[in-house]
């Protein structure tokens, strides 16, 4: 009996030891993976280009919510995060588009504040823009003749709106209440729903109108019509890599060309390309590694 118990304890402790020691490699560039496919694909690409062109290794850890990843990054535990200039400004820095000085771009403003106050900055834009958009089924668009979000105002009282829970907090400007006020919308009902069930809900008619991300492969799969944000309620969300300011200095011995290598991903994407890549993962069920590898190889960004 005692033997059995002590055996179990030893096995558990051994498991604990291996579990705690995984990924404690000091020489690695640390990334915490994102919760959706676009981030996963870009993170894999970062790992591939860095490991192909430098001696540094990249350690991609578990999925983590991006707000938390940003905090960990400022604290010095994370090195790179694939994010968006709009997210950096509104979600991470908790600023508003109205804070941007006249004549300055969102990207430049957010980047300056982040670098000065948080010790992180954005690299070159990747080229795609993953902003919020409003999606409806083609039947709905046709029935009510919808092309822009403004078109919704006249018919919104006949439609049910639904979006993920994150869209419903009262704080922040990219949220439900400011959105309906801005466009003068008055939906019949609104349903906060889990992100994972949003597309199922619009397809089975539980909701009529939803918020989507422009480069989500599932938009294509569900055949959603994207309504134009004609009065520019949503800010730009340009894809870019966020890095710690001290990253290149810390890795200068094993990866002197790190900045250049990471920026080789800059401008390599468009909205259509990114949508196709996430479509491969979300709809066709391929792994982010596989999709990332194929794309980089075709583009000649990695050698093998």
């Amino acid at each position: 009996m005692k033997k059995l118990m002590s055996f179990i304890v030893v096995v558990l402790l051994a498991l604990a030891a291996t579990g705690c020691s995984t990924g404690k490699d000091e020489a690695s560039i640390i990334i915490y993976d994102g919760t959706f496919s676009e981030m996963k694909i870009v993170h894999q690409m970062v790992k591939m280009v860095v490991e192909d062109h430098t001696k540094a290794t990249v350690d991609i850890r578990d999925e983590m919510d991006e707000v938390n990843t940003f905090k960990e990054m400022v604290a010095g535990h994370v090195d790179i995060l694939n994010t968006y200039d709009g997210t950096l400004l509104t979600t991470f820095l908790k600023l508003d588009t109205s804070d941007i000085p006249e004549g300055m771009s969102l990207y430049d403003y957010a980047n300056g504040v982040a670098s000065k106050e948080k010790g992180v900055h954005l690299l070159n834009k990747l080229g795609s823009e993953n902003t919020y958009a409003v999606g409806v089924l083609p039947e709905t668009a046709e029935k009510y003749n919808l092309k822009t979000i403004s078109d919704l105002a006249a018919v919104s009282d006949q439609l049910i709106f639904g979006a993920e829970h994150g869209f419903y907090t009262e704080e922040g400007s990219m949220k439900y209440t400011p959105f309906i006020k801005f466009y003068g919308l008055n939906f019949k009902e609104n349903k906060p729903i889990d992100l994972s069930l949003k597309y199922a809900a619009i397809k089975n008619g539980s909701i009529d109108v939803t918020i989507v991300y422009t480069t989500d492969g599932l938009n294509k799969e569900a055949g959603l019509v994207i309504l134009k944000d004609d009065r520019n309620f949503f800010p730009e969300y340009n894809d870019a890599l966020l890095v710690r300011n001290d990253l290149f200095e810390r890795f200068k011995d094993i990866a002197p060309n790190l900045e250049e290598v990471l920026n080789s991903l800059g401008g390599q994407f468009t909205d259509e390309i990114m949508t196709d890549l996430t479509y491969e993962v979300d709809v066709n069920g391929r792994t982010p590694e596989d999709v990332a590898h194929e794309y980089l190889l075709n583009k000649g960004l990695i050698s093998k």
Binding site: V67, N68, H165, G166, Y168, T169, E171, D194
Partner: peptide
């Protein structure tokens, strides 16, 4: 609903 919104926005 409160729990889901709270987790989504770290509140």
């Amino acid at each position: 609903e409160f729990i889901y919104i709270g987790i989504a926005s770290n509140n």
